[in-house]
């Protein structure tokens, strides 16, 4: 009995550790390269350690430019996405109107359409509208990736706010707008935050579309990565990777994991 239990504990522990190694291994390995002078196969440690590559990245105007572009475009995309999608999310979450479910399903279907195919036809449209190689074009492309997050997650959050709480507030003398501001929005806020974070990541990480539309005029950090991998030493790519991960890591801190888990799961259910 006890031996079996101990064996199970060990099994679970081993599995958990193996999974963690599977997840963290590649990241740590790449991260170590950012500080390596060079690396000789099959050594498990670098030949020497240096911060040289970091200086190189910051000195390189193309790389620094990509960082600036990304940090500029992403917030704009998230903001526009919020402005467009949140009212839609409220409508979907709160009102039932004809075609509501159809709209949701349609949006899901559109999301199932491979992005690269969508970009291909979008490219056709952009040629026609002279948006190729422009910031506006990139913003539109990145916007597409955020819509699902910005609509669905808040929509289910709005739907989940108990009517009775709003009614209690109305009863207490609050106006419609005040109720929305202090109760509805307040209760939906964690989910909206999750949506914003997911949108931010989606936009920040978007590479295919931005590359298709932006190159060779405009490079964002991820599209620059494509070029980097082929033209620079691996250490530079490693440095760039770490830089590219910084916003995400900050966001991990902002959104505690359990909030994301629960809200995400709730958010992706059509009702």
């Amino acid at each position: 009995m006890n031996a079996r239990r101990a064996l199970r504990e060990i099994g679970i522990g081993a599995l958990a550790i193996a999974l963690m190694a599977f997840i963290l291994g590649p990241i740590l390995w790449l991260g170590a390269h950012a500080f390596a002078t060079s690396w000789t196969f099959p050594r498990l440690s670098a030949d020497g350690w240096t911060t040289h590559w970091w200086h190189e990245v910051f000195a390189d105007s193309a790389l620094a430019g990509a960082i600036r572009t990304s940090l500029l475009i992403t917030p704009v995309v998230v903001l526009i996405s919020a402005v467009i999608c949140l009212p839609a999310a409220y409508a979907i979450g709160r009102h039932s109107f004809p075609g509501r479910r159809l709209f949701l399903i349609g949006m899901f279907a559109a999301n199932a359409f491979p992005k690269i195919g969508l970009f291909a036809s979008l490219a056709a449209l952009f040629y026609a509208m002279n948006l190729m190689g422009t910031v506006i074009g990139i913003v539109i492309v990145q916007l597409l990736g955020t819509i699902v997050f910005m609509t669905w997650i808040p929509a289910s959050a709005f739907a989940a706010v108990p009517r009775s709480l709003e009614e209690a507030a109305r009863d207490a003398g609050a106006s419609r707008l005040t109720v929305f501001r202090t109760i509805t929005l307040r209760l939906a806020m964690p989910s909206i935050l999750v949506a914003v974070i997911m949108s931010f990541l989606a936009s920040f990480d978007e590479a295919q579309g931005s590359y298709l539309v932006g190159a060779p005029n405009i490079y964002t950090m991820p599209t620059e990565m494509y070029a980097l991998v082929e033209n620079y030493p691996i250490q530079v790519a490693a440095v760039f990777s770490i830089l590219l991960s910084v916003p995400s890591v900050i966001l991990i801190g902002l959104a505690r994991q359990h909030i994301i888990g629960g809200r995400l799961a709730e958010g992706f259910q059509i009702r």
Binding site: P26, L30, D205, M221, I234, S241, L244, S248, I252
Partner: peptide, 30 residues
């Protein structure tokens, strides 16, 4: 730990895995 890859841009994930499992990567080194 399991959520970490969610916050890593896909390009980097791909590249990290490339270096980890690649010709002179960690797995082959070990």
């Amino acid at each position: 730990i399991i959520v970490v890859p969610m916050f890593v841009p896909v390009v980097i994930s791909a590249w990290a895995i490339h270096t980890f499992y690649g010709g002179d990567g960690f797995v082959r080194s070990v």
